[in-house]
């Protein structure tokens, strides 16, 4: 297994280090196994970050998921099931993005 360069909380230090393999390893360190349902949200949040250069808030993320992946998935509950406890933080970490600001 490759050694991934992360900070103390497990976020990638260099965002360009991210790859699908890295995501799998980051997910394992969170005790998560990635399914298609995880991957579509991971790609969605990465696209958002690349386009706007910021992380969405939870509210905006839910709305994005609803607009792009449908009403059924566009709920906090769906994201909580995929990335339990704190979906935005865990998703950001696995997607190789910076730690989201704590203001939502």
């Amino acid at each position: 297994m490759h050694c991934i360069d992360t900070d103390r909380e497990g976020y990638l230090k260099d965002l360009s280090d991210w790859s699908a393999d890295v995501a799998v390893q980051l997910a394992e360190s969170e005790s998560l196994t990635l399914t298609d349902n995880h991957w579509e949200v991971i790609h969605l949040i990465r696209d958002f970050y690349m386009k706007y250069k910021i992380s969405p808030t939870m509210r905006v993320l839910v709305r994005q998921v609803r607009d792009k992946l449908g009403v059924e998935k566009g709920r906090s509950f769906h994201l909580l099931t995929l990335f339990p406890d704190n979906p935005l933080k865990r998703l950001s970490k696995i997607a190789g993005l910076p730690k989201p600001p704590n203001c939502d």
């Binding site: 386009k51 250069k53 905006v60 709305r63």
Partner: peptide
């Protein structure tokens, strides 16, 4: 320096 002009486009989502 980080160019933040792309971020303005997100305001509609907010």
């Amino acid at each position: 320096i980080k160019d933040y002009s792309p971020t303005f486009a997100v305001l509609e989502q907010y």
